[in-house]
Design a binder for these strands. Structure first.
Lengths: 344, 344
DNA sequence: AAAGGTTATTTAAACGATTACTATGGAGAT
DNA sequence: ATCTCCATAGTAATCGTTTAAATAACCTTT
């Protein structure tokens, strides 16, 4: 009692302390049904007293049960990463799983497989926002790791995809219905799938409502970092409108971060939102609420949860049928798209 | 060759394939000197052919060598987390270590210890931005985990601390020298150490330069999320000035995120930065550059590297002397604090 | 009271690596 | 030729768990 000199406590100590065999301790750890209430209590007491925690490594080595899922993401600053992560965690907690995070740096996500799966660290992987090319596909295939994709698609895997086309459509429809007439969009610089889809949906909406589509009003910034999904790009895009001398009534930004940049540029130019020009973004990231910015919510939290429970399914039954879904976003209407000019 | 049916490849397969004993394979894996060049080549060939990767769990279980460091952080959205992380990674790569990340959710960081250290997952821990209270201290103490604190202090541990007082002082000095006279500050809502220190430094600078300190001009928002380091809080704070009918010439925000909120509120109120009121933040997070916001850089990347190499030291020699440092920040001057009114 | 059927517990064999110890074989010394 | 030494490779114990198989204990049933 006097010296808390901690030398690692193992299952043997616990067993000795409780007066049982180590296998019994293991059984109560794993909630096996074949343990009498009486001994369970004894063992639990010993565990608590010694504050015993089973070593993960030993556990993983001995057991065939999967107990570790990895989530690989190109960057922790991805706007919705934290959202998805929270969803994943909420779900993971329900099962008895551990979770480990890995950022791949977007260039070589196969590293995640090597690092986690081949080396036995993870038994299943959630891949977030990473495109699966042939090489990656081959690696996954040969590893046979249970896998769920979030925000990317591939015919061979389970995936949860955002419906970007619909999101773009909803944006367009919303702006039309609000009575704006000259509609523009700030897209990503590089040709990202997400931006292209949103643009396609947006244009489809305009066509559907017989609005004219003015190509000049579809611009992108020159800054190409993060695929042009940055404040900088949004900022630059606004100045492109300015140098054209031609502004839309309402602008749909490919994501919220751009919208922030755009907002700043508009302010600099002395234009008010929404009085002079309406603005909306995409993602519903935290600060939009308080900027009063209309945006599109992709419900990443829900997706995180769903992806995880799907993963659990695959783990249980590896040959279950593919489950490939696209999730529909919802529009969050706020002040930045109120039409204060026309009274239609 | 026809069926790539992968069933896990172990060190035994490699040994058989290379015609040696497993201990020999292990030796080449661990770069032991007592292996002839000839067999090393054989073994390496077998490893490559079977694309063998030693299982981390088995390795950890068998070896006494530490090979895993954890970095615990209250939130992945902490503005400088990614910066620190990059530094840590750069340094980790040099040694032969793995890294694992953990977000504690700021309430119960002891969970990190339980999850990583007690369970043998990590052999050393970097703790980022988490205050060490008595309870945590006790846990660390009894675990004897090699530990380095970043952005918090404790007499018993190695730490790398930001010099917040100096940062605040530099901010004050900068604004004074720029010729602003009525200086205010937006601090955090809760009494966080960082904000208090920055405020103290700021006031010290004012005193030092014989400026008067008007208490009314030191405000905080009511929103208390994340300790009041949010856009929301910054936004609210500006409206407090407004309702007082009393605005400073220049405002020092406790962090950049607040500054963003403040900027937005000022815009709403029709006030221009820096024409009507100058503004500066703290942290030098990404978007400040492009908002042209003067700020204070804490050089988190460097700190991440230093903390890691320090950790490596402790691992090697657990009884080495404590190394407790505070790192001085640097001021990044930008447009938001140019004095356009007075021509002093 | 013996046989059978549960249920609870223990014994002992994995899991896949590391590593102390032991064995082998040839070079150099005598 | 024998002995020693050293470099290299192999044998086997070990790390802390899980779990299948064996066993013990206790009820029922007859």
């Amino acid at each position: 009692m006097s010296k808390p000199m901690s030398k690692k406590v193992t299952i043997y100590e616990v067993a000795k302390n409780a007066g049982v065999a180590i296998s019994t301790v293991s059984r109560v750890l794993n909630k096996s049904p074949n343990v009498s209430e009486e001994t369970k209590i004894k063992v639990d007491k010993a565990i608590k007293e010694l504050s015993f925690r089973p070593q993960v490594s030993a556990r993983k080595l001995a057991s065939k049960e999967p107990n570790m899922v990895a989530i690989a993401v190109p960057s922790f600053t991805t706007p919705f990463f934290n959202e998805v992560l929270k969803g994943v965690k909420d779900e993971i907690k329900k099962m008895d799983l551990d979770i480990i995070m890995y950022n791949t740096g977007s260039r070589n996500p196969e590293e995640a497989v090597h690092n986690f799966f081949d080396r036995g660290t993870a038994d299943a992987v959630i891949i977030l926002s990473i495109d699966i090319d042939e090489e990656l596909h081959k690696i996954f295939q040969s590893s046979r790791v249970p896998l769920v994709l979030v925000n990317s698609v591939h015919p061979s895997y389970n995936y949860f995809m955002m419906n970007d086309h619909l999101g773009g459509y909803m944006a367009g429809e919303h702006l039309v219905k609000k009575g704006f007439e000259r509609l523009g969009m700030i897209r990503s610089g590089t040709q990202t799938r997400a931006s292209l889809e949103r643009e396609r949906g947006f244009k489809d909406a305009l066509k559907n409502y017989k609005m004219k589509v003015d190509k000049d009003l579809f611009v992108s910034g020159d800054s190409d970092k993060h695929g042009g999904f940055t404040e900088e790009a949004g900022y630059e895009a606004i100045y492109k409108y300015d140098s054209m001398g031609k502004f839309p009534d309402a602008i749909f930004c490919a994501n919220d971060t751009q919208a922030l940049g755009a907002l700043h540029a508009l302010t600099k130019l002395g234009l008010k939102v929404p009085e002079d020009v309406a603005l909306m973004g995409y993602d519903n990231i935290k600060f939009t609420k308080y900027l009063d910015l209309t945006t599109i919510d992709q419900k990443m939290h829900t997706i995180g949860m769903q992806a995880t429970s799907r993963l659990a399914e695959i783990i249980k039954n590896p040959d279950s049928e593919l489950f490939q879904t696209t999730i529909n976003p919802v529009l969050i209407e706020r002040g930045s798209t109120q039409n204060l000019k026309s009274k239609k």
